[in-house]
Design a protein around this nucleic acid. Structure first.
Length: 340
DNA sequence: AAGACGAAAGTGGTTGA
DNA sequence: TCAACAACTTTCGTCTT
């Protein structure tokens, strides 16, 4: 039932995400999937299944475990509901039997409670959103599970079904440490962010989900690839974030703001500068927030001197380059004159 | 002209009485 | 339920490159 124990680890392989080029991939052993940490794309899903072997050739037949296919929440009835066929069935029934099966069918329909009807509707919505945001099937499944729990606890009544679906999926993303913003979900179901956020918090509280505040580090791969920066920038930014966290400058601040500022600072230090506007757009925050975080980092980590040195070096290099260029030009001119 | 900077006013969410 | 509050956004004028 629980997904807490999902064995999941980050791998650095020769593989790259074809979507964004990110090299940090999550390996979900249970699902046999490799998922991009940045964009959530399923890079590979035909891996060896590490799950329970359903046959057992051991002599001790007590160990025999044959459990059938895993339940899938995304299929609204988990493939378990019963349908009593109607008269178009191959086996035409007569007289007593016919009325008996008619009765059965009616009862079956009555047993199909509002929960099932609700799930039928909402799971297609869930699939739509998750494919729109390119979520992996593992996340989708987790979202479906959470939503099913929400329905069973009667949390949906009085709320927009889409919002609860989006909230569940968002919660699933948080659990998988996938950086998807509330804005993206709000966009997908054309609602306001605050509505999605409120529903998410409600669902998370009622289901007693312990979801850690998202870590700025989770956003890094996404930002780095969106800004076309390299691994060096990423590790430097990660370094900055960790140092900032140690100085307790991160509490209360939005994690993507911290990640954005770290990325911006890293580009400054490495001399591959991106503008505040660029970074802000990618992170979905304003320049002002980046500035504030950046200033704090600069102060707390004592980066002023370092940044100054970088600036000086870049200036020096550009002067050098210019000189070289001028020299080449001069040489060219001289040679031209010789020809005349 | 573009980018960085900082001040000031406004917004939405949290907290605590 | 209301006010106080911190974080963030919007807007805008100024400075720097």
């Amino acid at each position: 039932m629980s997904r807490e124990d999902t064995s999941k680890e980050i791998i650095h392989s020769h593989k790259k995400c074809p979507e964004c080029g990110n090299i940090e991939l999550n390996w979900d052993k249970d699902k046999g999937e490799i998922i991009c940490r940045a964009c959530g794309l399923v890079v590979d899903d035909k891996l060896v299944d590490f799950g329970q072997e359903w046959r057992d050739f051991d002599e001790d037949s007590q160990k025999m475990r044959r459990t059938g296919a895993p339940l899938r929440y995304i299929e609204f009835d988990q493939g378990l509901s019963t349908a009593v066929g109607n008269k178009q069935d191959i086996y035409a029934l007569k007289g007593k039997n016919k009325s008996k099966f008619n009765r059965l069918r009616i009862w079956q329909n009555r047993v199909s409670t509002s929960i099932e009807r609700n799930l039928k509707m909402s799971m297609s919505e869930l699939k739509r959103i998750s494919s729109l945001l390119k979520l992996s099937s593992a996340v989708e499944e987790e979202g479906a599970r959470l939503y099913t729990m929400a329905v069973q606890k009667n949390l949906v009544r009085g709320r927009a079904m889409e919002a609860v679906v989006a909230g569940s999926l968002y919660a699933a993303c948080r659990r998988f440490e996938l950086p998807r913003s509330l804005d993206e979900f709000a966009e997908a179901i054309s609602m306001e962010r605050k509505d999605v956020g409120r529903t998410y918090r409600f669902v998370a509280r009622e289901l007693d989900l312990k979801i850690l505040p998202s870590n700025p580090l989770d956003y890094l791969p996404k930002f780095i690839s969106a800004l076309k920066l390299d691994a060096e920038a990423q590790s430097l930014a990660a370094d900055l974030i960790e140092k900032t966290q140690k100085l307790a400058l991160t509490s209360g601040r939005t994690p993507n703001g911290i990640a954005a500022a770290a990325v911006y600072t890293a580009t400054m230090i490495l001399g591959v500068k991106r503008t505040q506007r660029n970074v802000a757009d990618v992170a979905g925050i304003t320049e002002v927030t980046i500035r504030n975080r950046y200033k704090e980092m600069e102060k707390a980590l004592g980066l002023k001197q370092r940044l100054f040195d970088v600036k000086k070096r870049i200036k020096k290099e550009s002067i050098k380059k210019k000189k070289l260029k001028d020299k080449k030009k001069k040489d060219l001119n001289r040679r031209m004159r010789v020809f005349e």
